[in-house]
Design a protein around this nucleic acid. Structure first.
Lengths: 225, 225
DNA sequence: GGCTCTCTTCAGCGTGCCTTCAGCGACCAT
DNA sequence: ATGGTCGCTGAAGGCACGCTGAAGAGAGCC
């Protein structure tokens, strides 16, 4: 259960974070809209708690941007204002629920559980690149109609590269998004896993979907190699 | 778009009815829980607006009764009380949203639209996967024409996996959807129950409906293994 | 009280995944 | 050509993860 909190009130965000961690959620925090949007794009969350009023980029804009990009992660809006108009606007903008500050923590948790139970309206899209496809929901990888068996770490690396198909991703970017934040090992681990992936998804099919960009990182060909 | 309103405050119910009709909804009204439950059973609505405090049969009981019968029409709870505890209880009882009186009419409409857009979670009468079938109504599980005896917890776990057949569900997801929200025990409990289920629904039939996806969770094969 | 049944916890065990490491090869600049 | 850097690969140890049997706690029933 992974939650993203985006709120510019640092102390409030921190309080909520602690509470949710105690409830068993894995929680990321951002303190402005830009960071929040970036985190939401880079990672996959079960729900996003979004403050409406923030300097720079408002929660409303973050929500609209995500929906525009086809990201339908459940979003719970949070605001200090109690204006009814805000609520209406939030729902029109694609938010799934709404809580006004101040709120009881138990209410937030209950609503989050309801949102997550309900799940994202739209199934996470199947990621594809040419004849290579990966389905995060069923955790299946298929190339040329053959199902490929991957370990969870291999799957996570491939998923990350597929989400950024055509772009070069450095080893530290891969580690930052696939491994725990506190991973502090040899970046060579990425080379090892790229090797495993190539042996499973490329070599048997005579393809080269994962290209090495020396000195920069790896790129998964958008057409699947 | 068909809506059922259940509220014992006649004038308020009537006001809401007129407003929703003006918004293009088809609206039925009941003034107590008994009638409301009866209407909900007889007809199919896109959403139900339910007052929490009613003489005779409370909204909470109506909601629980419908959910018990497998009716998962989106329910919006309405109450004069502003107690946080009410909200928490409502969500646990299976309500999908909550509005406190007094409320702005535009807020009610916005939340109804959000609820309907989301739609009722699909709850088919009988869940099947290959020759394995589970009926939430009669609480019976059958495989290859043999009836299988499950405890209630085993039943709940199998039901959850069956509702997401083909998809991988993590242990925390299973716990979040099958155990009480305040369950705070060892996630190993899921392993134990999967073990029980395998012994009852798989092993005697030489099948493997429940697959382990190491590091991710479990997946019930859509074809029943 | 004694019995049964279910739920939950716990510890032991085996598998196989993760990670590290060293050696080798490829590529680049001098 | 040659040294240096970067990336690839196979091997191997440790250990995390999942499975299982056993047993205690609690509820319901006789």
């Amino acid at each position: 259960m992974r939650i993203l909190i985006v709120d510019d009130e640092v102390s409030l965000a921190e309080g909520v974070r602690r509470g949710l961690v105690a409830e068993g959620f894995a929680v990321d925090v951002a303190h402005d809209g830009i960071d929040g949007l970036w985190l939401a794009r880079e990672n996959t969350y079960d729900a996003i708690v979004l403050d409406l009023m923030m300097p720079g980029m408002s929660g409303w804009k973050v929500c609209a941007a995500l929906r525009d990009e086809g990201d339908w992660t459940p979003i719970l809006m949070l605001t200090a204002r109690d204006g009814d108009q805000d609520q209406v606007e939030s729902f029109k903008g694609g938010a799934d629920d709404y809580v006004t500050k101040p709120f009881a923590f138990s209410v937030l948790v209950a609503r989050l559980h309801a949102l997550i139970r309900r799940g994202a309206p739209e199934r996470p899209a199947v990621l594809t690149a040419g004849d290579l496809s990966l389905d995060p929901g069923t955790r299946r990888v298929v190339r040329a109609e053959a199902e490929i068996d991957l370990t969870s770490r291999e799957f996570a690396v491939l998923e990350y590269l597929l989400r950024h198909a055509g772009q070069v991703r450095s080893k530290s970017q891969v580690i930052g998004n696939v491994w725990d934040d506190d991973f502090d090992g040899d970046p060579n681990i990425v080379e090892v896993y790229v090797g495993h992936l190539r042996r499973k998804i490329d070599r048997p099919f005579g393809r080269t979907a994962i290209e090495t960009v020396r000195g920069a990182g790896y790129r998964l060909a958008a057409d699947g190699g």
